[in-house]
Design a protein around this nucleic acid. Structure first.
Lengths: 182, 182
DNA sequence: GTTCACCTACCGTCTTATAGGTAAGTGAAT
DNA sequence: ATTCACTTACCTATAAGACGGTAGGTGAAC
């Protein structure tokens, strides 16, 4: 309920009274459970993060190996729940300022995601499945950046940008890039 | 003035009275010139777009040719004016919803940018400087996505992500990707 | 003397949050 | 089994403030 509204109108643009009504109670009833608007936001983020765990695990495969073909699958799953993707995009933007409510959370999250992807790349390099002149940290940031950016373009203009098609093409490019020159 | 505040706290999070004060006048004084908050936003976007023209032109070079080495230069210029970059990121996120104030503007802008980059790629393919099995539309979306995504990660965590370094590495990767196999 | 730029004063609305109360349940003591 | 103490889950009512916008006036420029 809160997830949808925060995703549609952002943190600042959402009145928690509306969240309460959709949840079938009044504003004070909602605040009885969460204490404040910011606490509600953090609760939403936390719940959403369980889902985000799947992000890394899916990219990772079971044993820390790169599984590029799962990228479009993941994009496809987002396609069916655009609210969650929108929530993510909007909240990150609203959290850019250092003193914003969710700032530290998203900073930590991106650091963790970059580290996970970088470790995958390193593992691939040690196994000889990934080119050694790739800088893991930079490539990790680039991969996450591309997927986020494609998602934003899709959310903004779903008629023009097909997230699954874009993600598939990118996954192929990425595979060729990582393995170029054996 | 308005650019900075909209960039820091977004459209919804910015009180136009604060904009007025920073501009050295009162709220009604500001509204005398712009009429409404939404009109102020559109004026800010329009002014910012002059700057954004440079984006395409710089990427494009003078005669519609790809100029990848200018990507890190462009990133470096953004680095000195993070307010502008932040404004862009925040406003796009706030405009995802179809009825949001700047929605159509950003939809059009991304369509135009994708078209410009795609045309560049097509020109490169005709000149034989770019691989022919690249799909121009998809690659254009991917390039813009990566640059946007890197910028977001940098804005969120400037200590960990160096936008110039990231953009440089990406530009090199991109060059290799576009020209792979002659 | 009319237009333009701007001000003070104010309105109505929306929003978060609190105060204080009610109803229902839980668990222990008797 | 019933009473009592207490907690939980809400409610109505209201405070307290921020916000966008308007009305109407003042003063200077031309």
């Amino acid at each position: 309920m809160a997830t949808e509204l925060f995703g549609q109108t952002g943190y600042r643009g959402t009145a928690i009274a509306e969240v309460a009504i959709r949840a079938g109670l009044t504003l004070p009833g909602l605040l009885h459970h969460f204490g404040s608007k910011e606490a509600l936001l953090l609760a939403v983020i936390e719940q959403r993060d369980a889902d985000s765990e799947a992000y890394a695990t899916e990219l990772l495969g079971r044993e820390g190996q790169l599984r590029l073909p799962s990228i479009p699958d993941f994009a496809g799953r987002n396609k069916e729940r655009p609210g969650l993707a929108k929530l993510f995009t909007v909240l990150v933007a609203e959290s850019l300022e250092p003193n914003a409510p969710g700032h530290e959370h998203f900073v930590d999250r991106y650091r963790a995601l970059r580290a996970i992807v970088a470790d995958m790349i390193i593992a691939g390099q040690q196994d000889g499945r990934v080119r050694k002149d790739i800088v893991p940290k930079l490539k990790a940031a680039e991969i996450l950046a591309t997927l986020d950016g494609l998602q934003t373009q899709w959310l903004l203009d779903p008629d023009e940008v097909d997230i699954v098609e874009s993600a598939s093409a990118y996954a192929e490019n990425l595979e060729r890039d990582l393995t170029a020159g054996l």
